Simulated scan of single mutants.
Amino acid sequence: MVSQRAGGGTGRAFQRVADTLRSRLADGRTYPIDRLLPSERELAAEFDVSRDTVQRVLRELRSEGWIRAEQGRGNRVVKTQSIHSPDRPRGQAEQVNLAVVLDKAFAAEKVTLDVYSLTSESLVGRLQEQAGRIRRGEISPQGIKVRMLLPAKDALMDLPRRVDGGDSSPLLERLHGIIDVMAGMVCKTLEDLQTEGRVPSVKVSVRHTRARPQFKLYLVNRTEALHALYRSERRAITLHGGETVDAVDVLGMQATLIHYEEGVDPESHGSLFVRESQLWFDEEWADSLSGATSHPMGATAGEQKRVRP
Rank of each mutant, 00 (worst) to 15 (best):
V206T: 15
E283T: 13
Q194E: 15
D246V: 02
T209H: 03
T195E: 09
V49F: 11
R24M: 13
R76C: 02
H269D: 14
P141I: 08
F281N: 00
L113S: 07
V245M: 08
L123W: 11
V220L: 12
S39V: 05
F106I: 02
C187D: 15
G9V: 09
T30G: 12
H240L: 10
G177Q: 09
V77M: 06
G9N: 03
F47D: 09
I179M: 01
R161W: 00
G263H: 06
E70S: 01
Q254A: 15
D192F: 08
N221L: 04
I258F: 07
N97D: 15
L226K: 09
D167I: 01
T244I: 14
V54W: 10
L226W: 04
T293H: 01
V202H: 02
E276D: 13
S277W: 05
D154E: 02
R126N: 12
L118G: 08
T53G: 05
R73C: 07
A286C: 01
G137S: 07
T20Q: 11
E42V: 14
L150R: 01
T10G: 01
E261S: 14
Q130M: 14
Y116A: 02
H269K: 06
S288P: 10
L37F: 08
L37T: 03
S63Q: 15
S169I: 05
S232M: 08
V250M: 04
K145V: 15
S232N: 07
Q55Y: 12
E233P: 04
Q15A: 15
L272R: 14
T53A: 12
R234C: 14
L37Q: 04
L156C: 00
L175E: 03
H84S: 13
D103C: 06
R222G: 12
E303V: 12
S288T: 09
G241E: 03
L123F: 08
V163F: 10
D154G: 02
M297F: 09
E303C: 10
G28P: 05
W280Y: 06
G298Q: 09
F273E: 12
E191F: 03
A211F: 07
L289V: 10
L289N: 07
S294G: 14
A228I: 01
H84V: 15
R161H: 06
T30K: 09
P151W: 02
R308A: 14
Q55K: 15
I258A: 07
G197T: 06
I144E: 00
Y116N: 00
V57N: 03
R235W: 02
T53I: 15
R59Y: 11
L229I: 11
G165L: 07
A105F: 01
P151L: 00
R73T: 13
G197M: 11
G74P: 05
P309F: 11
Q55W: 05
V274A: 00
Q278Y: 01
S268T: 02
E276M: 11
F47K: 11
A105I: 07
E191K: 09
R35T: 15
P213M: 05
Q254N: 10
G177F: 08
P160D: 03
R126Y: 08
V146T: 03
A301E: 13
M148Q: 06
S23K: 05
G11E: 07
H240E: 13
D19W: 06
F47A: 11
G197L: 10
A301T: 13
A211T: 09
P89H: 05
G177S: 03
R59I: 13
D192W: 06
G11Q: 02
G241I: 03
A299D: 07
E267I: 10
M157Q: 05
L289K: 01
A105V: 06
